[in-house]
Each structure stands twice: as C-alpha cells, then as structure tokens.
C-alpha cells in the first residue's frame, strides 16, 4: 500500500493516484499492491435515474395541480349554470397557458426547440379559439404569420454555422411567398401582391443587398450603415408608390413617394461622395485603406 506524497493519506491497494488530489502514485508494484476486495465498486452497472430534479418536478406538479383544479372548477361552474355558461374557451386557455409554462421545464432548454414548441402551441391555441369564437376567417392569416416568424426567427438556428446563408435565402423567399399568400387569403384574388408587393419587396431586397455587400466587404462607418438602411427604406417607399401608380394605370411617375425619392437621391449622392472623399484622402495621406 502506498501513501500520497501530497496529502499524506494511505491509499487503498492498487491505487494509481490519490483520490483526493489526483497525484500519481510513483512506486514499485509491490508497494502499490493490489486490493483483492475493494471497499467500493468502481464500475457503474445499470441504474434508473429519475428524469427531473426536485425543484423542477415541484414546479411541474404545481402547474399541473392548478390546471386540474381550475378545469374542475370551471366544469362545476358550467354545470351549476345549467348550460348558460360555456367553459370551453377558458378551459382551452388554461390548458394552453399551463403548457406554455411546462414546455421550458420539460424539454431541454434550447431556444430553437422551445420557440418551435411555443409556435406550434400558439397555432393550436389560435385554431381552438377560432373554432369556438368565430368559426371562419382570420386563423389562416395568423397561422401564416406564425409560420413566417418560425422561418425568420427559429429556422436559422437549425442551420449549421457555415450554411447560414441558406437560411437567409430561405427567409427572402418566405417573405415573398408570405406576401403572395396573404394577398390570396385576404380576398381570394391576387390583387396587390404581384403588381405592387413583390416588385416593391424586390427593390428593397436589392437595395439591402448592396448595403450588405458594402458592409461585408467594405469598411463602412456606423453612419454609412445607418444611411444605407434609411436609403433602402426610401427606395422601398418610392417603389411602393411607383408600382401602385403603374397598377392603377396612372400617368404620373410618383405622387407621395416623390419626397422620399429626393431624399434617396441625396443620400445616394452623400454616400458616393463619402466614398470618393475617403479614397482621395487616403491617397494623399498614403493610407492603404
């Protein structure tokens, strides 16, 4: 049997290191020895591990208990009111409220998973409310919006680090599809999406694309970035007005979009001048960038 040179404790026969400080035992095998009957089992056999820790289990049980009590109370109230009171909307809301609280406690805490479950729950809740309150209409639009939100805010986290650009392309395409479907669902006619919505969206995307290229490969200042965003917004407004006028066969070039158009032109000139002046200054001050 060996002793730990650091802690001074006598080690069980066969120990290769001190269990207290992990100092390696450097001694001949006859000193280290061998423990024929070790005090404790080192290997781990099969054992059942409960799923949740105490606090988490307590909160889950508490939420479930209150849900059950609330539902029972509502049912009793409905029975007491002899059919004049419908408890279903309240019951559905309680169940879904409970589920919203339970999801982060049950699933592994992970943004994309929890967000996905929340969106599915929200979709189901909307369907439930729609069926109970107003059995037609708006549910499809809300579901569509939830779907778009999922694509924009959750899907990027499912893509691996190197392929995030694919999620960007998917997002651009989804917004376009959303505009078309929104138009189609609204009055069952593609009245504005193809003639105004998509072209305007296209202009904004192209403008933002230029800004993105400049931000990624250039050396813009913060004011450049802000100006680029404002510029894209102006182009969007101008495009909206322009395509709207084309769709109603107006002879005018622009109406209310004229002012943003002037602003956009000025901003564009400012940006171009800023780039030119920076280059000139760099040239004369011998700066490489």
């Amino acid at each position: 049997m060996a002793y730990c040179v650091k802690c001074g404790v006598k080690l069980e026969g066969g120990s290769q290191a001190c269990p207290l400080c992990n100092t390696k035992v450097v001694a001949p095998p006859e000193i280290i020895g061998e423990e024929k009957y070790p005090l404790l089992v080192k290997e781990e056999g099969k054992i059942f591990h409960p799923l949740f820790d105490k606090t988490r289990k307590g909160i889950i049980e508490l939420v479930l208990a209150f849900m059950v009590i609330a539902v029972i109370t509502l049912i009793i109230t409905a029975i007491a009111h002899k059919g004049t009171f419908s408890p279903w909307l309240a019951i559905i809301s309680i169940i879904f409220g409970g589920l919203y609280l339970l999801i982060p406690l049950i699933v592994k805490v992970n943004y994309s998973k929890i967000a996905t479950y929340y969106l599915i729950l929200s979709g189901l809740l909307v369907i439930g409310i729609n069926l109970l309150v107003e059995p037609e209409g708006w549910v499809a639009i809300v579901l569509l919006s939830l779907g778009l939100f999922w694509v924009l805010a959750v899907v990027p986290f499912y893509f691996p680090e190197g392929k995030r650009y694919l999620s960007l392309l998917l997002s651009i395409f989804s917004i376009a599809l959303y505009l078309v479907l929104l138009d189609a669902l609204h009055d069952n006619l593609l009245s504005w999406s193809l003639s105004i919505g998509l072209p305007t969206y296209g202009v904004v995307i192209v403008s933002l694309g230029f800004s993105a290229i400049r931000i990624k490969w250039g050396t813009p200042t913060l004011s450049d970035i802000i100006i680029s965003i404002v510029l894209s917004s102006c182009w969007g407004v101008v495009a909206g007005d322009f395509f709207h006028l084309r769709s109603i066969h107006s002879e005018r070039f622009l109406t209310w979009g004229f002012s943003p158009f002037i602003v956009a032109l000025l901003l564009l000139i400012i940006l171009i001048l800023a780039v030119i002046f920076r280059r000139v200054r760099n040239f004369f001050t011998n700066r490489l960038t």
Binding site: G8, V9, K10, L11, A17, C18, P19, L20, P38, K42
Partner: peptide, 19 residues
Amino acid sequence: LSALVERGVAVEVATNRRN
C-alpha cells in the same frame, strides 16, 4: 482529511472514483 493527517491522525482512503 489533510487536516487530520497534519494533526497526526493516520488516514487510509478508499474510493469508487475512477482516476
């Protein structure tokens, strides 16, 4: 356990911890 050893108590340890 080091405090015990420092005070002159001989201590022998066994464990199920894996090195």
